[in-house]
Amino acid sequence: MLSIRGLSKVYRGKATPAVSNVDLDLRPGEVLGLVGLNGAGKTTTIRVAAGLVYPTAGHVAVNGLDLTRDKAEASRYIGLVPEFPNFEPGSRAINQLRYYAGFYGVTGAAARELCTELLRKVGLSDMDQVRLRTFSQGMKKRFSLAASLLGDPEFFLLDEILSGLDPEGVLLARNLMVDLRARGHGILLSSHILSEVQQVADRVAIMHEGRLIKTLTRDEVEMTEGATLRLTIENLDDPGMELIRTYGTVRRDGNTVWITHPNLDPGQINTELIRHNYKVVSLGFESLNLEQAFFDAVRGPPPKAP
């Protein structure tokens, strides 16, 4: 298990902590989503968990090994894909990967074979002799994903892995995560794309202003109430929108409107709209539950109408 206990991090020259007193466990065979606004402390948490920066307080342990004290040994259990990976620009992809493989004790022909296979796995098999300076951000992400697979680590720390990836890359990453989870690997997935997190995460940790404010299970996410109500109204007009705005936060696309945290029951809303001669074609909740849960956690749920 990857265990984060009492983690705080204050960067040099900064008054406020980037992360404050975070406790988190990542278990084998689970995907733990890590969500939060910009500056919430997600990346710092991952960087400390990967051993890239020292914690100011608290500690990170993986399978009982302290990541500060036993860094070299503990890192064998961790594969990292940073948000903005960077590599030696003048190095060829295969050479850079083989250099990394050496740290896992894989050298020579075995390293070449392994690295070629990993590049194939992330869709870069024809780029093995290309210098990394020519790689796009998406290709760097794929390459970083291949590098994280070296040594077959038990845990993966994926920081915004989907950003910069093309749709094919997103699919590849998603399938890889599902596959890794099925094989018993634990994944800490930090992402701004809540729908992606919701798709694959078994649990979701919500961070805000450096603190871990809530951890939800998949069931808890899906059970979240006060979700977004979706209505399609055939004769929707401006006075109709004025009326609907009194029911909650509203977003409109053509004849469809979404009401976040409606302050009336759906039946009451439906009745009111009919009473005002609007023809409601469809009405129902959408499963944007993580988003709601997130904003609930960050801002607090809106008060219900009396």
Partner: peptide, 11 residues
């Protein structure tokens, strides 16, 4: 940040 890619290894 290139060095971080190396530091993430078992070293």
């Amino acid at each position: 940040g290139v060095l971080e890619g190396v530091l993430a290894r078992p070293v």
